[in-house]
Write a protein that binds this DNA or RNA. Structure first.
Lengths: 104, 104
DNA sequence: TTGACAAATAGACAACCATCAATATAATAA
DNA sequence: TTATTATATTGATGGTTGTCTATTTGTCAA
């Protein structure tokens, strides 16, 4: 978990559309078209672009099936990035200590 | 803690210079000039700009003293934003549950 | 092989942002 | 008051990014 990873992680979250996509595929696998339909206000290429950003940040997993590609949020990645953020920038918090215990 | 807050929080972290500034004033109060000197590669107006971004995200506290302004990272804010992120985007993780217990 | 559908990629454009030099504001000292 | 120091603000500039349309690639069915 390098500093670069944390910047990529933050960049990924620094956009409302991407947050909506992550919320959608938080606990289920969705095809690109399903994401496009549920968002309702962005085109398919735009969604593909955002999914590429999320992939590069390690925040979504992809699974190919026939013509379709299904995506799902990598919750473990969210946890470890948030944990790292707390370790780096909130070392004096007891919440951080609790997270550190759980993460090791 | 609205969705807008989370986007502001992520934007604040989505820049390497701002991460360095936050690291510097993580556990102490620093004047703007001290931050400029410790960074070494950015001008004073640039630092003031970044501090404004961090202020608007609620991530630093400011204290005026004479001509100087001292800044310090708000660690509690880091914790609550990270916690909210985990609650929203990693609800199935046991680390998230541990954080939720601590945060209430 | 052809046609249809799903997703990714390319290219263009406008909006945003990180940075700087220059200037303004505010507080103190002489 | 005038000069000096610390910080904030303004305006400009180059780079990045979110979005779109158009096209390409890949997969399957007829």
């Amino acid at each position: 978990m390098t500093k670069h990873d944390i910047v990529l992680f933050a960049k990924a979250f620094a956009d409302d559309t991407r947050q909506k996509i992550m919320k959608l595929c938080c606990c289920e696998w969705l095809s690109v078209n399903e994401i496009v339909e549920r968002l309702g206000n962005v085109t398919q290429p735009t969604v593909s672009h955002h999914l590429a950003v999320l992939r590069e940040a390690g925040l979504v997993d992809a699974r190919h099936e026939g013509k379709q590609t299904f995506y799902s949020l990598n919750q473990q990645r969210v946890v470890s990035c948030c944990g790292q953020l707390m370790l780096n920038f909130a070392p004096e918090s007891d919440v951080t200590e609790a997270v550190a215990d759980k993460l090791e």
